[in-house]
Nucleic acid binder design. Structure first.
Lengths: 107, 107
DNA sequence: GGGTATTATCGTAATATTGCAATATTACAT
DNA sequence: ATGTAATATTGCAATATTACGATAATACCC
């Protein structure tokens, strides 16, 4: 045992958890912070910027990509990572709904 | 190696990641969903409600407690878990700020 | 006190995550 | 083709998470 029992949860719960998992590491927050504040597409200052090895950054980028938060396009010889704003807003809404859905009123 | 390098990130990044980590498991989402929709304090229907063993639920509750999202008080013989609304709103704001802080405009 | 119900902790096994060195791939130069 | 710079993949070690049976602790009742 030790694996998450996905079969007993709703799709929504699993999706929200998956999105949260991507945000559950400071390196990925730092990466998203950095990318989301660039005027132009950035490539990989990230390695220098964040202070982790290149393969590690690459792996984190991959995690972020997996939930669709990144669009990567080529521009010159450099890969260009950008936030996928549609998906960003989607996740924003999911979190908003989660935090907004509190009706409990006891303690 | 394998441990997160906390020393290279900002406190804000680490805090947000820690909050996200709590939400990064469907069981904890399910628990929070359930508690946050109760009119009255609930105790442990959670074990029956969610379908995980009692020690597992207890551990998840503990994780949620660690970031201050739960207030537990005694009422009769049953422990009563409630959402700490102050903290809930705090986290809501942290996530809102994170998602709202996007200025990038390229792809 | 003894019995019962609820919650917490301990111990342990299975699995997942994190990080990096080494290596491979890709794209563009010359 | 050869060289160079950027990114990805592989392999592996260290650590963390998830889950649960067994057991302990706690609060109530009689």
């Amino acid at each position: 045992m030790g694996a998450t029992k996905t079969e007993i949860f709703t799709v929504l719960q699993i999706d929200l958890a998956a999105a949260a998992k991507v945000l559950a590491h400071p390196a990925r927050i730092a990466i998203l912070n950095h990318i989301s504040k660039q005027e132009h597409c950035i490539c990989n200052d990230l390695v220098a910027e964040i202070g982790l090895a290149q393969p590690t950054i690459s792996q984190h980028l991959n995690e972020i990509k997996k939930i669709g938060l990144l669009k990567g396009t080529f521009e010159g010889k450099n890969l260009c990572y950008c936030i996928d704003k549609e998906r960003w807003k989607e996740l924003q809404t999911i979190f908003q709904d989660f935090f907004g859905g509190i009706t409990q009123n006891c303690c």
